[in-house]
């Protein structure tokens, strides 16, 4: 058995809401193998985003340990963990710097987690490489290299966010409903592109989605979160046999 890529051990996360402690994650244990592509389902408030925030370091875990690529990151800040983790958010506005151009954003992402000193940025040297990269998205991003990202369409911005997240291969890619804000066609395109990037780089990935079909179609493992716990965990073959109605049971419990 290979060393797991991500280990979550007995994670409990509590936040204060109106001065009342509220436990959002309860006793979460999880191990991902390198190359695992895991889809995560759950109703609103089930703890999906909390899970991501805890892994990425935005929220501290009250108990437990987080180990990434054999490295204990439990005490590391979000900024320190950025060396290993990259993330794409649901809101296209969250992933890119709006007044900086597409190429400048890519350059920033290329240095994710690296020390940034007084070296010249050498943007021109990378332009050809970035153009080729952007051409893969199939939405004309390669023609917008010098456009501030604030002027791009939502689909283009999300594709760019995904490129930025995977430009420097992360130990863990977190996709937080990254297609949810897009129209169905653009959303399908981006999911296909996501699959290509994940396969090509053999990425380990957790993907939150509300789209049950996507959850079934993509990835080799499926988690269902309920009330801050992992309620179901389907591996390879189990996942292959899952049907839409099996999943719907989680969301519309029969009375």
């Amino acid at each position: 058995m290979t060393e797991p890529q991500l280990v979550l051990e007995n994670i409990n996360t509590t936040v204060l809401q109106n001065d009342q402690p509220k436990q959002l994650l309860k006793q979460v244990n999880l191990q991902l193998q390198p190359g695992d592509f895991v889809t995560v389902l759950g109703t609103n408030g089930a703890g999906k985003s909390t899970l991501f925030n805890t892994i990425a370091g935005n929220l501290p875990a009250q108990t437990g340990r987080i180990v990434l690529q054999g490295q204990d990151v439990t005490q590391q800040s979000e900024v320190q963990r950025a060396k290993l983790i990259s993330r794409v958010f649901q809101d296209p506005k969250l992933g890119t710097a709006p007044r900086m151009t597409v190429a400048e954003n890519l350059l920033l992402a290329q240095e994710r987690g690296r020390h940034r000193g007084l070296r010249p940025r050498r943007l021109k040297q990378h332009l050809a490489e970035y153009a080729a990269l952007c051409a893969q998205t199939g939405n004309g991003l390669e023609r917008e290299l010098d456009t501030p990202t604030g002027n791009l369409s939502g689909g283009q911005r999300q594709a760019l966010s995904l490129l930025m997240a995977t430009l420097k291969t992360p130990a863990l890619l977190l996709l937080d409903e990254h297609t949810a804000a897009l129209d169905p066609k653009t959303s399908r395109q981006l999911m296909q592109f996501t699959q290509e990037r994940i396969t090509a780089q053999h990425l380990t990935c957790l993907m939150i989605t509300h789209h049950l079909q996507d959850a079934l179609q993509y990835g080799n493992r499926l988690l269902v979160l309920q009330n801050g716990r992992i309620a179901a965990d389907y591996r390879q073959e189990q996942k292959a046999q899952l049907t839409l109605s099996d999943l719907l049971d989680f969301f519309e419990p029969s009375l």
């Binding site: 979000e78 900024v79 950025a82 993330r87 710097a97 940034r116």
Partner: peptide, 9 residues
């Protein structure tokens, strides 16, 4: 927010 996610302090 994005800057922090890219490891910029």
């Amino acid at each position: 927010t994005m800057a922090r996610a890219l490891g910029i302090s």
